[in-house]
């Protein structure tokens, strides 16, 4: 019980007194997971739209792969990214192992299938007649996709929320490709694991609380965006 109270008061102290190390770790968490989510949106939404609309042989097989990718364990993603990024791995020349860049790559691998799969579902749900209607009104190809994306906004924001939630909470990949290096690649989740193994349960609870607050704040903003005018369109 004491540990829980110490953890929660510790979290408040860290937030309001501004522990510089905790701030650094928190900013890095936002930076890495934010960029990884952005990249996964840039790739995942167009790819999802393509898979939802285009008919080609093997399409269902590809979609089933994407859907399986949603359950890709972060540690497995981390392992594969490590193998590729090691000094003597195929992409060793990039020299990004144990840097935030490597963590972004790993989190991108984790988030992309999530964003893609949600996008496929969101676009697939749109009424078939709407496609005809848009095309009949003389929309260009670009306008057509744009209108579909707007139409599927609720689902697409769900995709972004799920992708972000997937990466900000993962620890296996960040630990493996980042190495939890103090001041360089330590993020909230890896710091939490380390504090637990050091037996500092109160600090671990404090870090976990900050992570939850952070995840909640970002998700809250996204949810507001998602729900605004959601009924009107």
């Amino acid at each position: 019980m004491n540990t829980i109270i110490a953890g929660l008061t510790g979290a408040l102290k860290m937030i309001f007194l501004g522990d510089p190390e905790v701030f650094r770790v928190t900013f890095l968490t936002i930076q890495v997971s934010g960029i990884a989510t952005l990249l996964s949106i840039i790739v995942g939404i167009p790819a999802g739209v393509f898979l939802a609309l285009k008919r080609f042989p093997g399409r269902r097989f590809v979609i089933s792969l994407v859907n399986t990718g949603m359950g890709l364990p972060p540690t497995v993603a981390g392992l594969w990214v490590s193998v590729f990024l090691w000094r003597y791995g195929p992409f060793g020349f990039l020299k990004i192992m144990y840097t935030p860049a490597a963590m972004i790559v790993a989190q991108f691998v984790i988030a992309s299938p999530i964003v893609m799969a949600f996008t496929i579902a969101a676009i697939g749900q749109i009424n078939k007649k709407l496609h005809l209607q848009i095309l009949a009104l003389g929309a260009s190809r670009f306008q057509y996709y744009w209108l579909l994306i707007k139409e599927a906004r609720l689902g697409l924001l769900a995709a972004i929320i799920a992708g972000f939630g997937g990466v900000i909470s993962e620890v296996g990949a960040s630990m493996m490709v980042g190495g939890n290096v103090k001041g360089q690649t330590r993020v909230l989740t890896t710091a939490t694991v380390m504090e637990v193994s050091k037996g500092n349960f109160d600090v671990a609870i404090a870090l976990g609380t900050i992570l939850l607050i952070l995840a909640y704040s970002v998700t809250f903003v996204l949810t507001i965006v998602q729900q605004r005018g959601g009924n009107k369109s």
């Binding site: 701030f23 934010g34 952005l38």
Partner: peptide
């Protein structure tokens, strides 16, 4: 909505930038 997202992203990268300077 897009403006809001842009603002959010900017805010995040700004925050992230501060962390790096430190």
């Amino acid at each position: 909505t897009s403006a809001l997202i842009v603002v959010l992203v900017l805010m995040l990268s700004l925050l992230a930038g501060c962390g790096q300077e430190q």
